[in-house]
Computed example of a mutant assay.
Amino acid sequence: MRKIFAIFSIVALGLTGCLSAKATQPMDLLTQTAWELSSINGKKVDAASLPNGVPTAIFDKEHKISGNSSCNGYGGSYNLNDEGGMNVSQIMATKMYCEGSIENEYFKAIEKINTAKVEKDKLTLMEGVDERLVFVPKK
């Protein structure tokens, strides 16, 4: 009887592990987090030098992206496939002028991405193997 209970416990733990692994799929990690930019084109973002804030990105399950570009609010569409391929398109933004913004560099970088690496504490958007935008969960 103890052997049957032990086998049942092992099987139950294995199934629980499988279920929790599904909860951390790339799409789930991507859409369950509000992201804040930590580096752009290999350079660390200096929040103190951005009077209007650090760029942000929110990805939803309907394949829409939105956020702030360090000046203007923006929105668009994205696609993410199972192999990590990603693109962002149809970006539209408000048109305020902001001194000290990195908005132009941010939008140029986001247009170039074709790969995403989604982790629990880090989102890396790349052009090939070159890191363009690295995000961390927004605090």
Rank of each mutant, 00 (worst) to 15 (best):
Asn68Tyr: 00
Val54Ser: 00
Gly100Leu: 00
Glu105Val: 15
Ile102Leu: 00
Ile58Tyr: 09
Gly73Cys: 06
Asp60Lys: 01
Lys108Cys: 07
Ala93His: 03
Gly75Glu: 12
His63Tyr: 14
Ile102Val: 11
Pro55Asn: 12
Tyr78Asn: 11
Gly73Met: 12
Phe59Ile: 10
Ile65Phe: 03
Asn68Phe: 01
Ser101Lys: 01
Ile113Val: 13
Met92Ala: 10
Lys112Phe: 01
Asn52Glu: 10
Asn81Leu: 07
Lys108Gln: 06
Glu62Ala: 14
Ala93Gln: 09
Gly84His: 10
Lys95Phe: 06
Ala109Cys: 02
Gly76Ile: 07
Asn68Lys: 02
Gly53Thr: 08
Tyr74Gln: 04
Val54Glu: 00
Phe59Lys: 06
Ser77Tyr: 15
Lys64Ser: 13
Ser89Pro: 11
Ser77Leu: 15
Gly73Val: 13
Cys98Thr: 09
Asp82Leu: 04
Glu99Phe: 13
Tyr106Asp: 03
Gly75Gln: 13
Ser70Trp: 00
Glu103Ser: 09
Phe59Asp: 06
Gly53Asn: 05
Thr94Val: 09
His63Thr: 12
Cys98His: 01
Lys61Gln: 02
Ser66His: 01
Asn81Met: 13
Asn52Trp: 02
Leu80Phe: 00
Met96Gln: 08
Lys95Tyr: 06
Glu111Gln: 08
Ser69Asp: 10
Ile65Gln: 04
